[in-house]
Design a protein around this nucleic acid. Structure first.
Length: 491
RNA sequence: GCGGCCGUAGCUCAGCUGGUAGAGCACCACCUUGCCAAGGUGGAUGUCGUGAGUUCGAAUCUCAUCGGCCGCUCCA
């Protein structure tokens, strides 16, 4: 493949490091692959993404409450959820074709062949052999060799040994070694919600339908991380489990798909690059009745930002069975126990922040006139307003500092007095600051300043005491510039 | 793990027919400044990923090693 042209992502990655959004992790020690640290601006961006999500999911409604469960739970949680058994893949490589496969999938494909040929006895025999071999890598490889399974690409049986790939990070709890002290870093926040179902119901007296929201780090030992912060082994999730009556699940499923899709649009994501994609039946996880992804068109293709799934009553049922606790809901009117269905919107915080960066990135003009600007929604911009003295004399710096002190109480602020005014405007554009306030000679006599908008570059003269109200109003009314050209001339 | 690409200043990169480093932008100081990447003067910054070899001499050639990025079953 030819070397690809520098994409928006390359430019965003570079900007992220230069301006302090995202740094490669462990850099002074040579780096740690696919691991990133969020810098001073990045942490603000992420924080505001999480605030916007929490606002939409918890504060603006009466039917959802929050939770912050532990990262390290009992290993039994992950046995019940199926992660211990199912979140671990046996991998095998073909030395000739260099292709990598799931070893158990190769055997399953063979079973499928037998089934199509109607050899039911062989199907049954091999199925039981596969079940016996699961978890035993040597046995699994032997089974592949015994069955004469060939690589579909190379046609050879030149296989490597089977190696287990655990998707969950293991750790030890306590000083005592041994299997009893093995624990896992959670691979999703959702299970922490399910296991607290009874606690939340009894402590909040919530009635169906209701939801529990949670934001937190999760860990997956991804085989293939990559695409900047899109897929990393440590990541932050924003998940909400919405519990409802089974007969209402389809309705809520559609509701949450619309609701979550709209959330991205409300925060200014380009509608042309956002879509809702319904999973095909064979894509669905074993517990899911339906799943739709909110996808964004990155330079590397359509990729999932958030999955909205109908998890049925799978999780509550499993945890009831495995724990011996009754995780059902008692409906007082109908006088019956029901195990609610769950609709789960599960979003990735890091990839959402990355989406805002990539989607907001814009270059206007050419050469010396080129303007790099991040068209962030004012609600998620790391800095809301920057204050400048027009020149560094006649008391302007002091006046600017005074205004900054006042605005600091209500907005994320920045103050700069170095270099020319134009350069300072452009620097703030590059980090997506929606407003700039400039103090000049008239400010000292009549208390007015110039308010300059990032997207249109339009300026207006306003009173210092009106700044807050005007910026709030403009923020509330903000909409994304539909094209770069329009943004450039609309002032 | 396999394949491809790549490690030179904060960022983007040039230098790779061997002579111990450059550009643009960024940064710092001073002067200038009067609303969109202004100008002037001066300045700091690199053990050229690491180690070894060849050589009088290596960023450049050889070998090794470490690391990163992009693909290949996984998903937020």
């Amino acid at each position: 493949m030819a070397k690809p042209a520098p994409s928006v992502m390359d430019k965003v990655v570079s900007l992220c490091k230069r301006r302090g959004f995202v740094f490669p992790a462990s850099e002074i020690y040579g780096g740690q692959g696919s691991t990133y640290d969020w810098g001073p601006l990045g942490v603000e961006l992420k924080k505001r993404v999480k605030e916007a999500w929490w606002e939409a999911m918890v504060y603006s409604r009466q039917d959802i409450v929050g939770l912050d469960s532990a990262i390290i739970q009992s290993p039994k949680v992950w046995q019940a959820s199926g992660h211990v058994g199912g979140f671990s893949d046996p991998l095998i490589d073909n030395k000739t074709s260099k292709q990598r496969y799931r070893a158990d999938h190769l055997v399953e494909a063979k079973i499928e062949k037998y089934r199509k040929k109607g050899k039911t006895d062989k199907v049954a025999a091999l199925e039981s052999k596969l079940v016996a071999a699961i978890g035993d890598n040597d046995a699994l490889k032997q089974l592949i060799l015994d069955e004469g399974i060939k690589d579909p690409v190379s046609g050879t049986d030149d296989w490597t040994d089977v190696r287990q790939f655990n998707l969950m990070f293991q750790t030890q709890v306590g000083a005592v070694e041994g299997s009893a002290s093995i624990a896992y870093l959670r691979p999703e926040t959702a299970q922490g919600i399910f296991i607290n179902f009874n606690n939340v119901v009894t402590s909040t007296r919530k009635k169906l339908p209701f939801g529990i929201a949670q934001i937190g780090k999760s860990f997956r030992n991804e085989i293939t991380p990559g695409n900047f912060v899109f897929r990393t082994r440590e990541f932050e999730q924003m998940e909400m489990e919405f519990f409802c009556r089974p007969e209402e699940a389809d309705e809520w499923y559609k509701y949450w798909q619309q609701e979550r899709y709209q959330w991205y649009l409300d925060l200014g994501i380009n509608p042309d690059k956002l879509r809702m994609r319904e999973h095909a039946k064979d894509e669905l996880a074993h517990y899911a009745r339906g799943c739709g992804d909110v996808e964004y068109l990155f330079p590397f293709g359509w990729s999932e930002l958030e999955g909205i799934a109908n998890r049925s009553n799978y999780d509550l049922t499993k945890h009831s069975e495995c724990s011996g606790q009754n995780l059902s809901y008692f409906d007082q009117e109908a006088n019956e126990h029901i195990t609610p269905f769950v609709i789960e919107p599960a979003a990735g915080c890091d990839r959402t922040a990355m989406t805002f960066l990539a989607d907001a990135y814009d270059e206007e003009g050419e050469g010396k006139q080129k303007r790099v600007v991040l068209h962030f929604h004012p609600r998620i911009a790391p800095v809301t307003v920057a204050i400048f003295p027009l020149v560094k004399k006649e008391g302007m710096p002091e006046k600017a500092a005074e205004i900054e002190q006042e605005l600091r109480r209500h907005f994320r602020t920045a103050i700069e007095e170095n270099q020319s005014i134009g350069r300072r405007y452009r620097r703030q554009d590059e980090i997506g600051t929606p407003f700039c306030v400039t103090v000049d000679g008239d400010t000292l006599s009549d208390g007015s300043v110039t308010l300059r908008e990032r997207d249109s570059m339009a300026q207006e003269r306003v009173k210092i005491e009106d700044l807050r109200e005007i910026m709030d109003a403009k923020s509330a009314a903000w909409s994304r510039p539909s094209t770069p050209q329009e943004a450039a001339v609309s002032g």
